Amino acid sequence: MNPATEGPVALVSGAAGGIGAAVARVLAEHGSTVVAVDRDEQQLATVVGKLTADGLPVHARPVDVTSREAVEALVEDIEEHTGPIAQLVNGAGVLGLGAARGLSDETWHTTLAVNATGVFLLSTAVVNRMVPRGRGALVTVASNAAGTARTEMAAYAASKAAATAFTRCLGLEVARHGIRCNVVAPGSTDTPMLHGMHPPGAAASAAVAGNPDAYRTGIPLGKVATPLDIAHAVRFLLSDEAGHITLETLTVDGGATLGAV
């Protein structure tokens, strides 16, 4: 362990942008030493460069979370050289759009690999090391689409449902070891992923308005979430303030799913 490390060590995947980058910032601002993970090495370096320039303890580690070998090597290295991982955030995610009947094999497999298998690999690698210590907290960033049908989003919704179910089952098994596992389910959030679903400049207004033809309600609060909205929810569930909360899903969608998720 690095004796200079202060505060709990947090591993955050998908940290190169959007929600993951916001989570890395918020956790670091609240005292965690953050290991920021993403497969986009260039963008990750840019994000982490900004965070360290602000004096925050964040370290970049480019890793493909779909590779068991890479994940195990990453976690082992963090445990040896940075410190015991106390917080894990599964934030890595991809969005493959397409009608369920027309999805390509590649879209299906890639979406499940990152959004579900990545959660499985990172969670087990980290939690297996938390168990002997008898403490730790994990949050998986899923989606309100995991529990609400969405047109053109079958692969994404299925992958997030799988990640949600896995996280809760894992949490049930390791609760006796003092480890908490929860889910944050964002709705439409002001990220590149959302903007990629709509014409330029139209993402926020389209999400707020909804689309009856696609069976989508709008957002009752009248705005999309910011990445910080999601990051603060994640930080809460990792914190001692949520010390008696596990196996739960906290939906952060401005009411878009009408409280049904």
Rank of each mutant, 00 (worst) to 15 (best):
M1E: 10
N2Y: 12
A4E: 06
T5Q: 09
E6H: 10
S13Y: 12
A15K: 03
A16C: 10
A16L: 09
G18P: 04
G20S: 11
A22S: 10
S32P: 09
T33F: 09
R39E: 12
D40E: 10
Q43G: 15
L51S: 10
T52R: 15
D54A: 01
A60V: 06
R61G: 02
S67A: 14
S67C: 13
E69P: 09
V71T: 15
A73Q: 15
I78W: 12
E80N: 09
G83H: 15
I85P: 14
Q87R: 15
V89S: 05
G93D: 13
A99G: 10
A99I: 04
A100S: 07
S104G: 14
H109A: 09
L112V: 08
N115V: 05
A116R: 03
T117N: 11
F120V: 14
L122Y: 00
S123M: 01
R129P: 12
R133N: 01
G134T: 13
R135A: 10
L138F: 04
T140G: 09
T151Y: 10
T151G: 09
A155L: 01
Y156R: 03
K160M: 04
A163P: 03
A165M: 02
C169L: 13
E173Q: 06
R180I: 01
C181K: 03
D190Q: 10
P192V: 12
M193L: 14
L194H: 08
G196T: 09
D213I: 04
A214K: 08
Y215H: 02
R216S: 08
T217I: 06
G218Y: 03
P220F: 09
L221A: 07
L221Y: 05
K223I: 09
P227D: 07
I230R: 01
I230W: 01
H232K: 09
F236Y: 15
L238Y: 11
D240E: 07
G243C: 06
G243R: 15
T249W: 06
T257C: 11
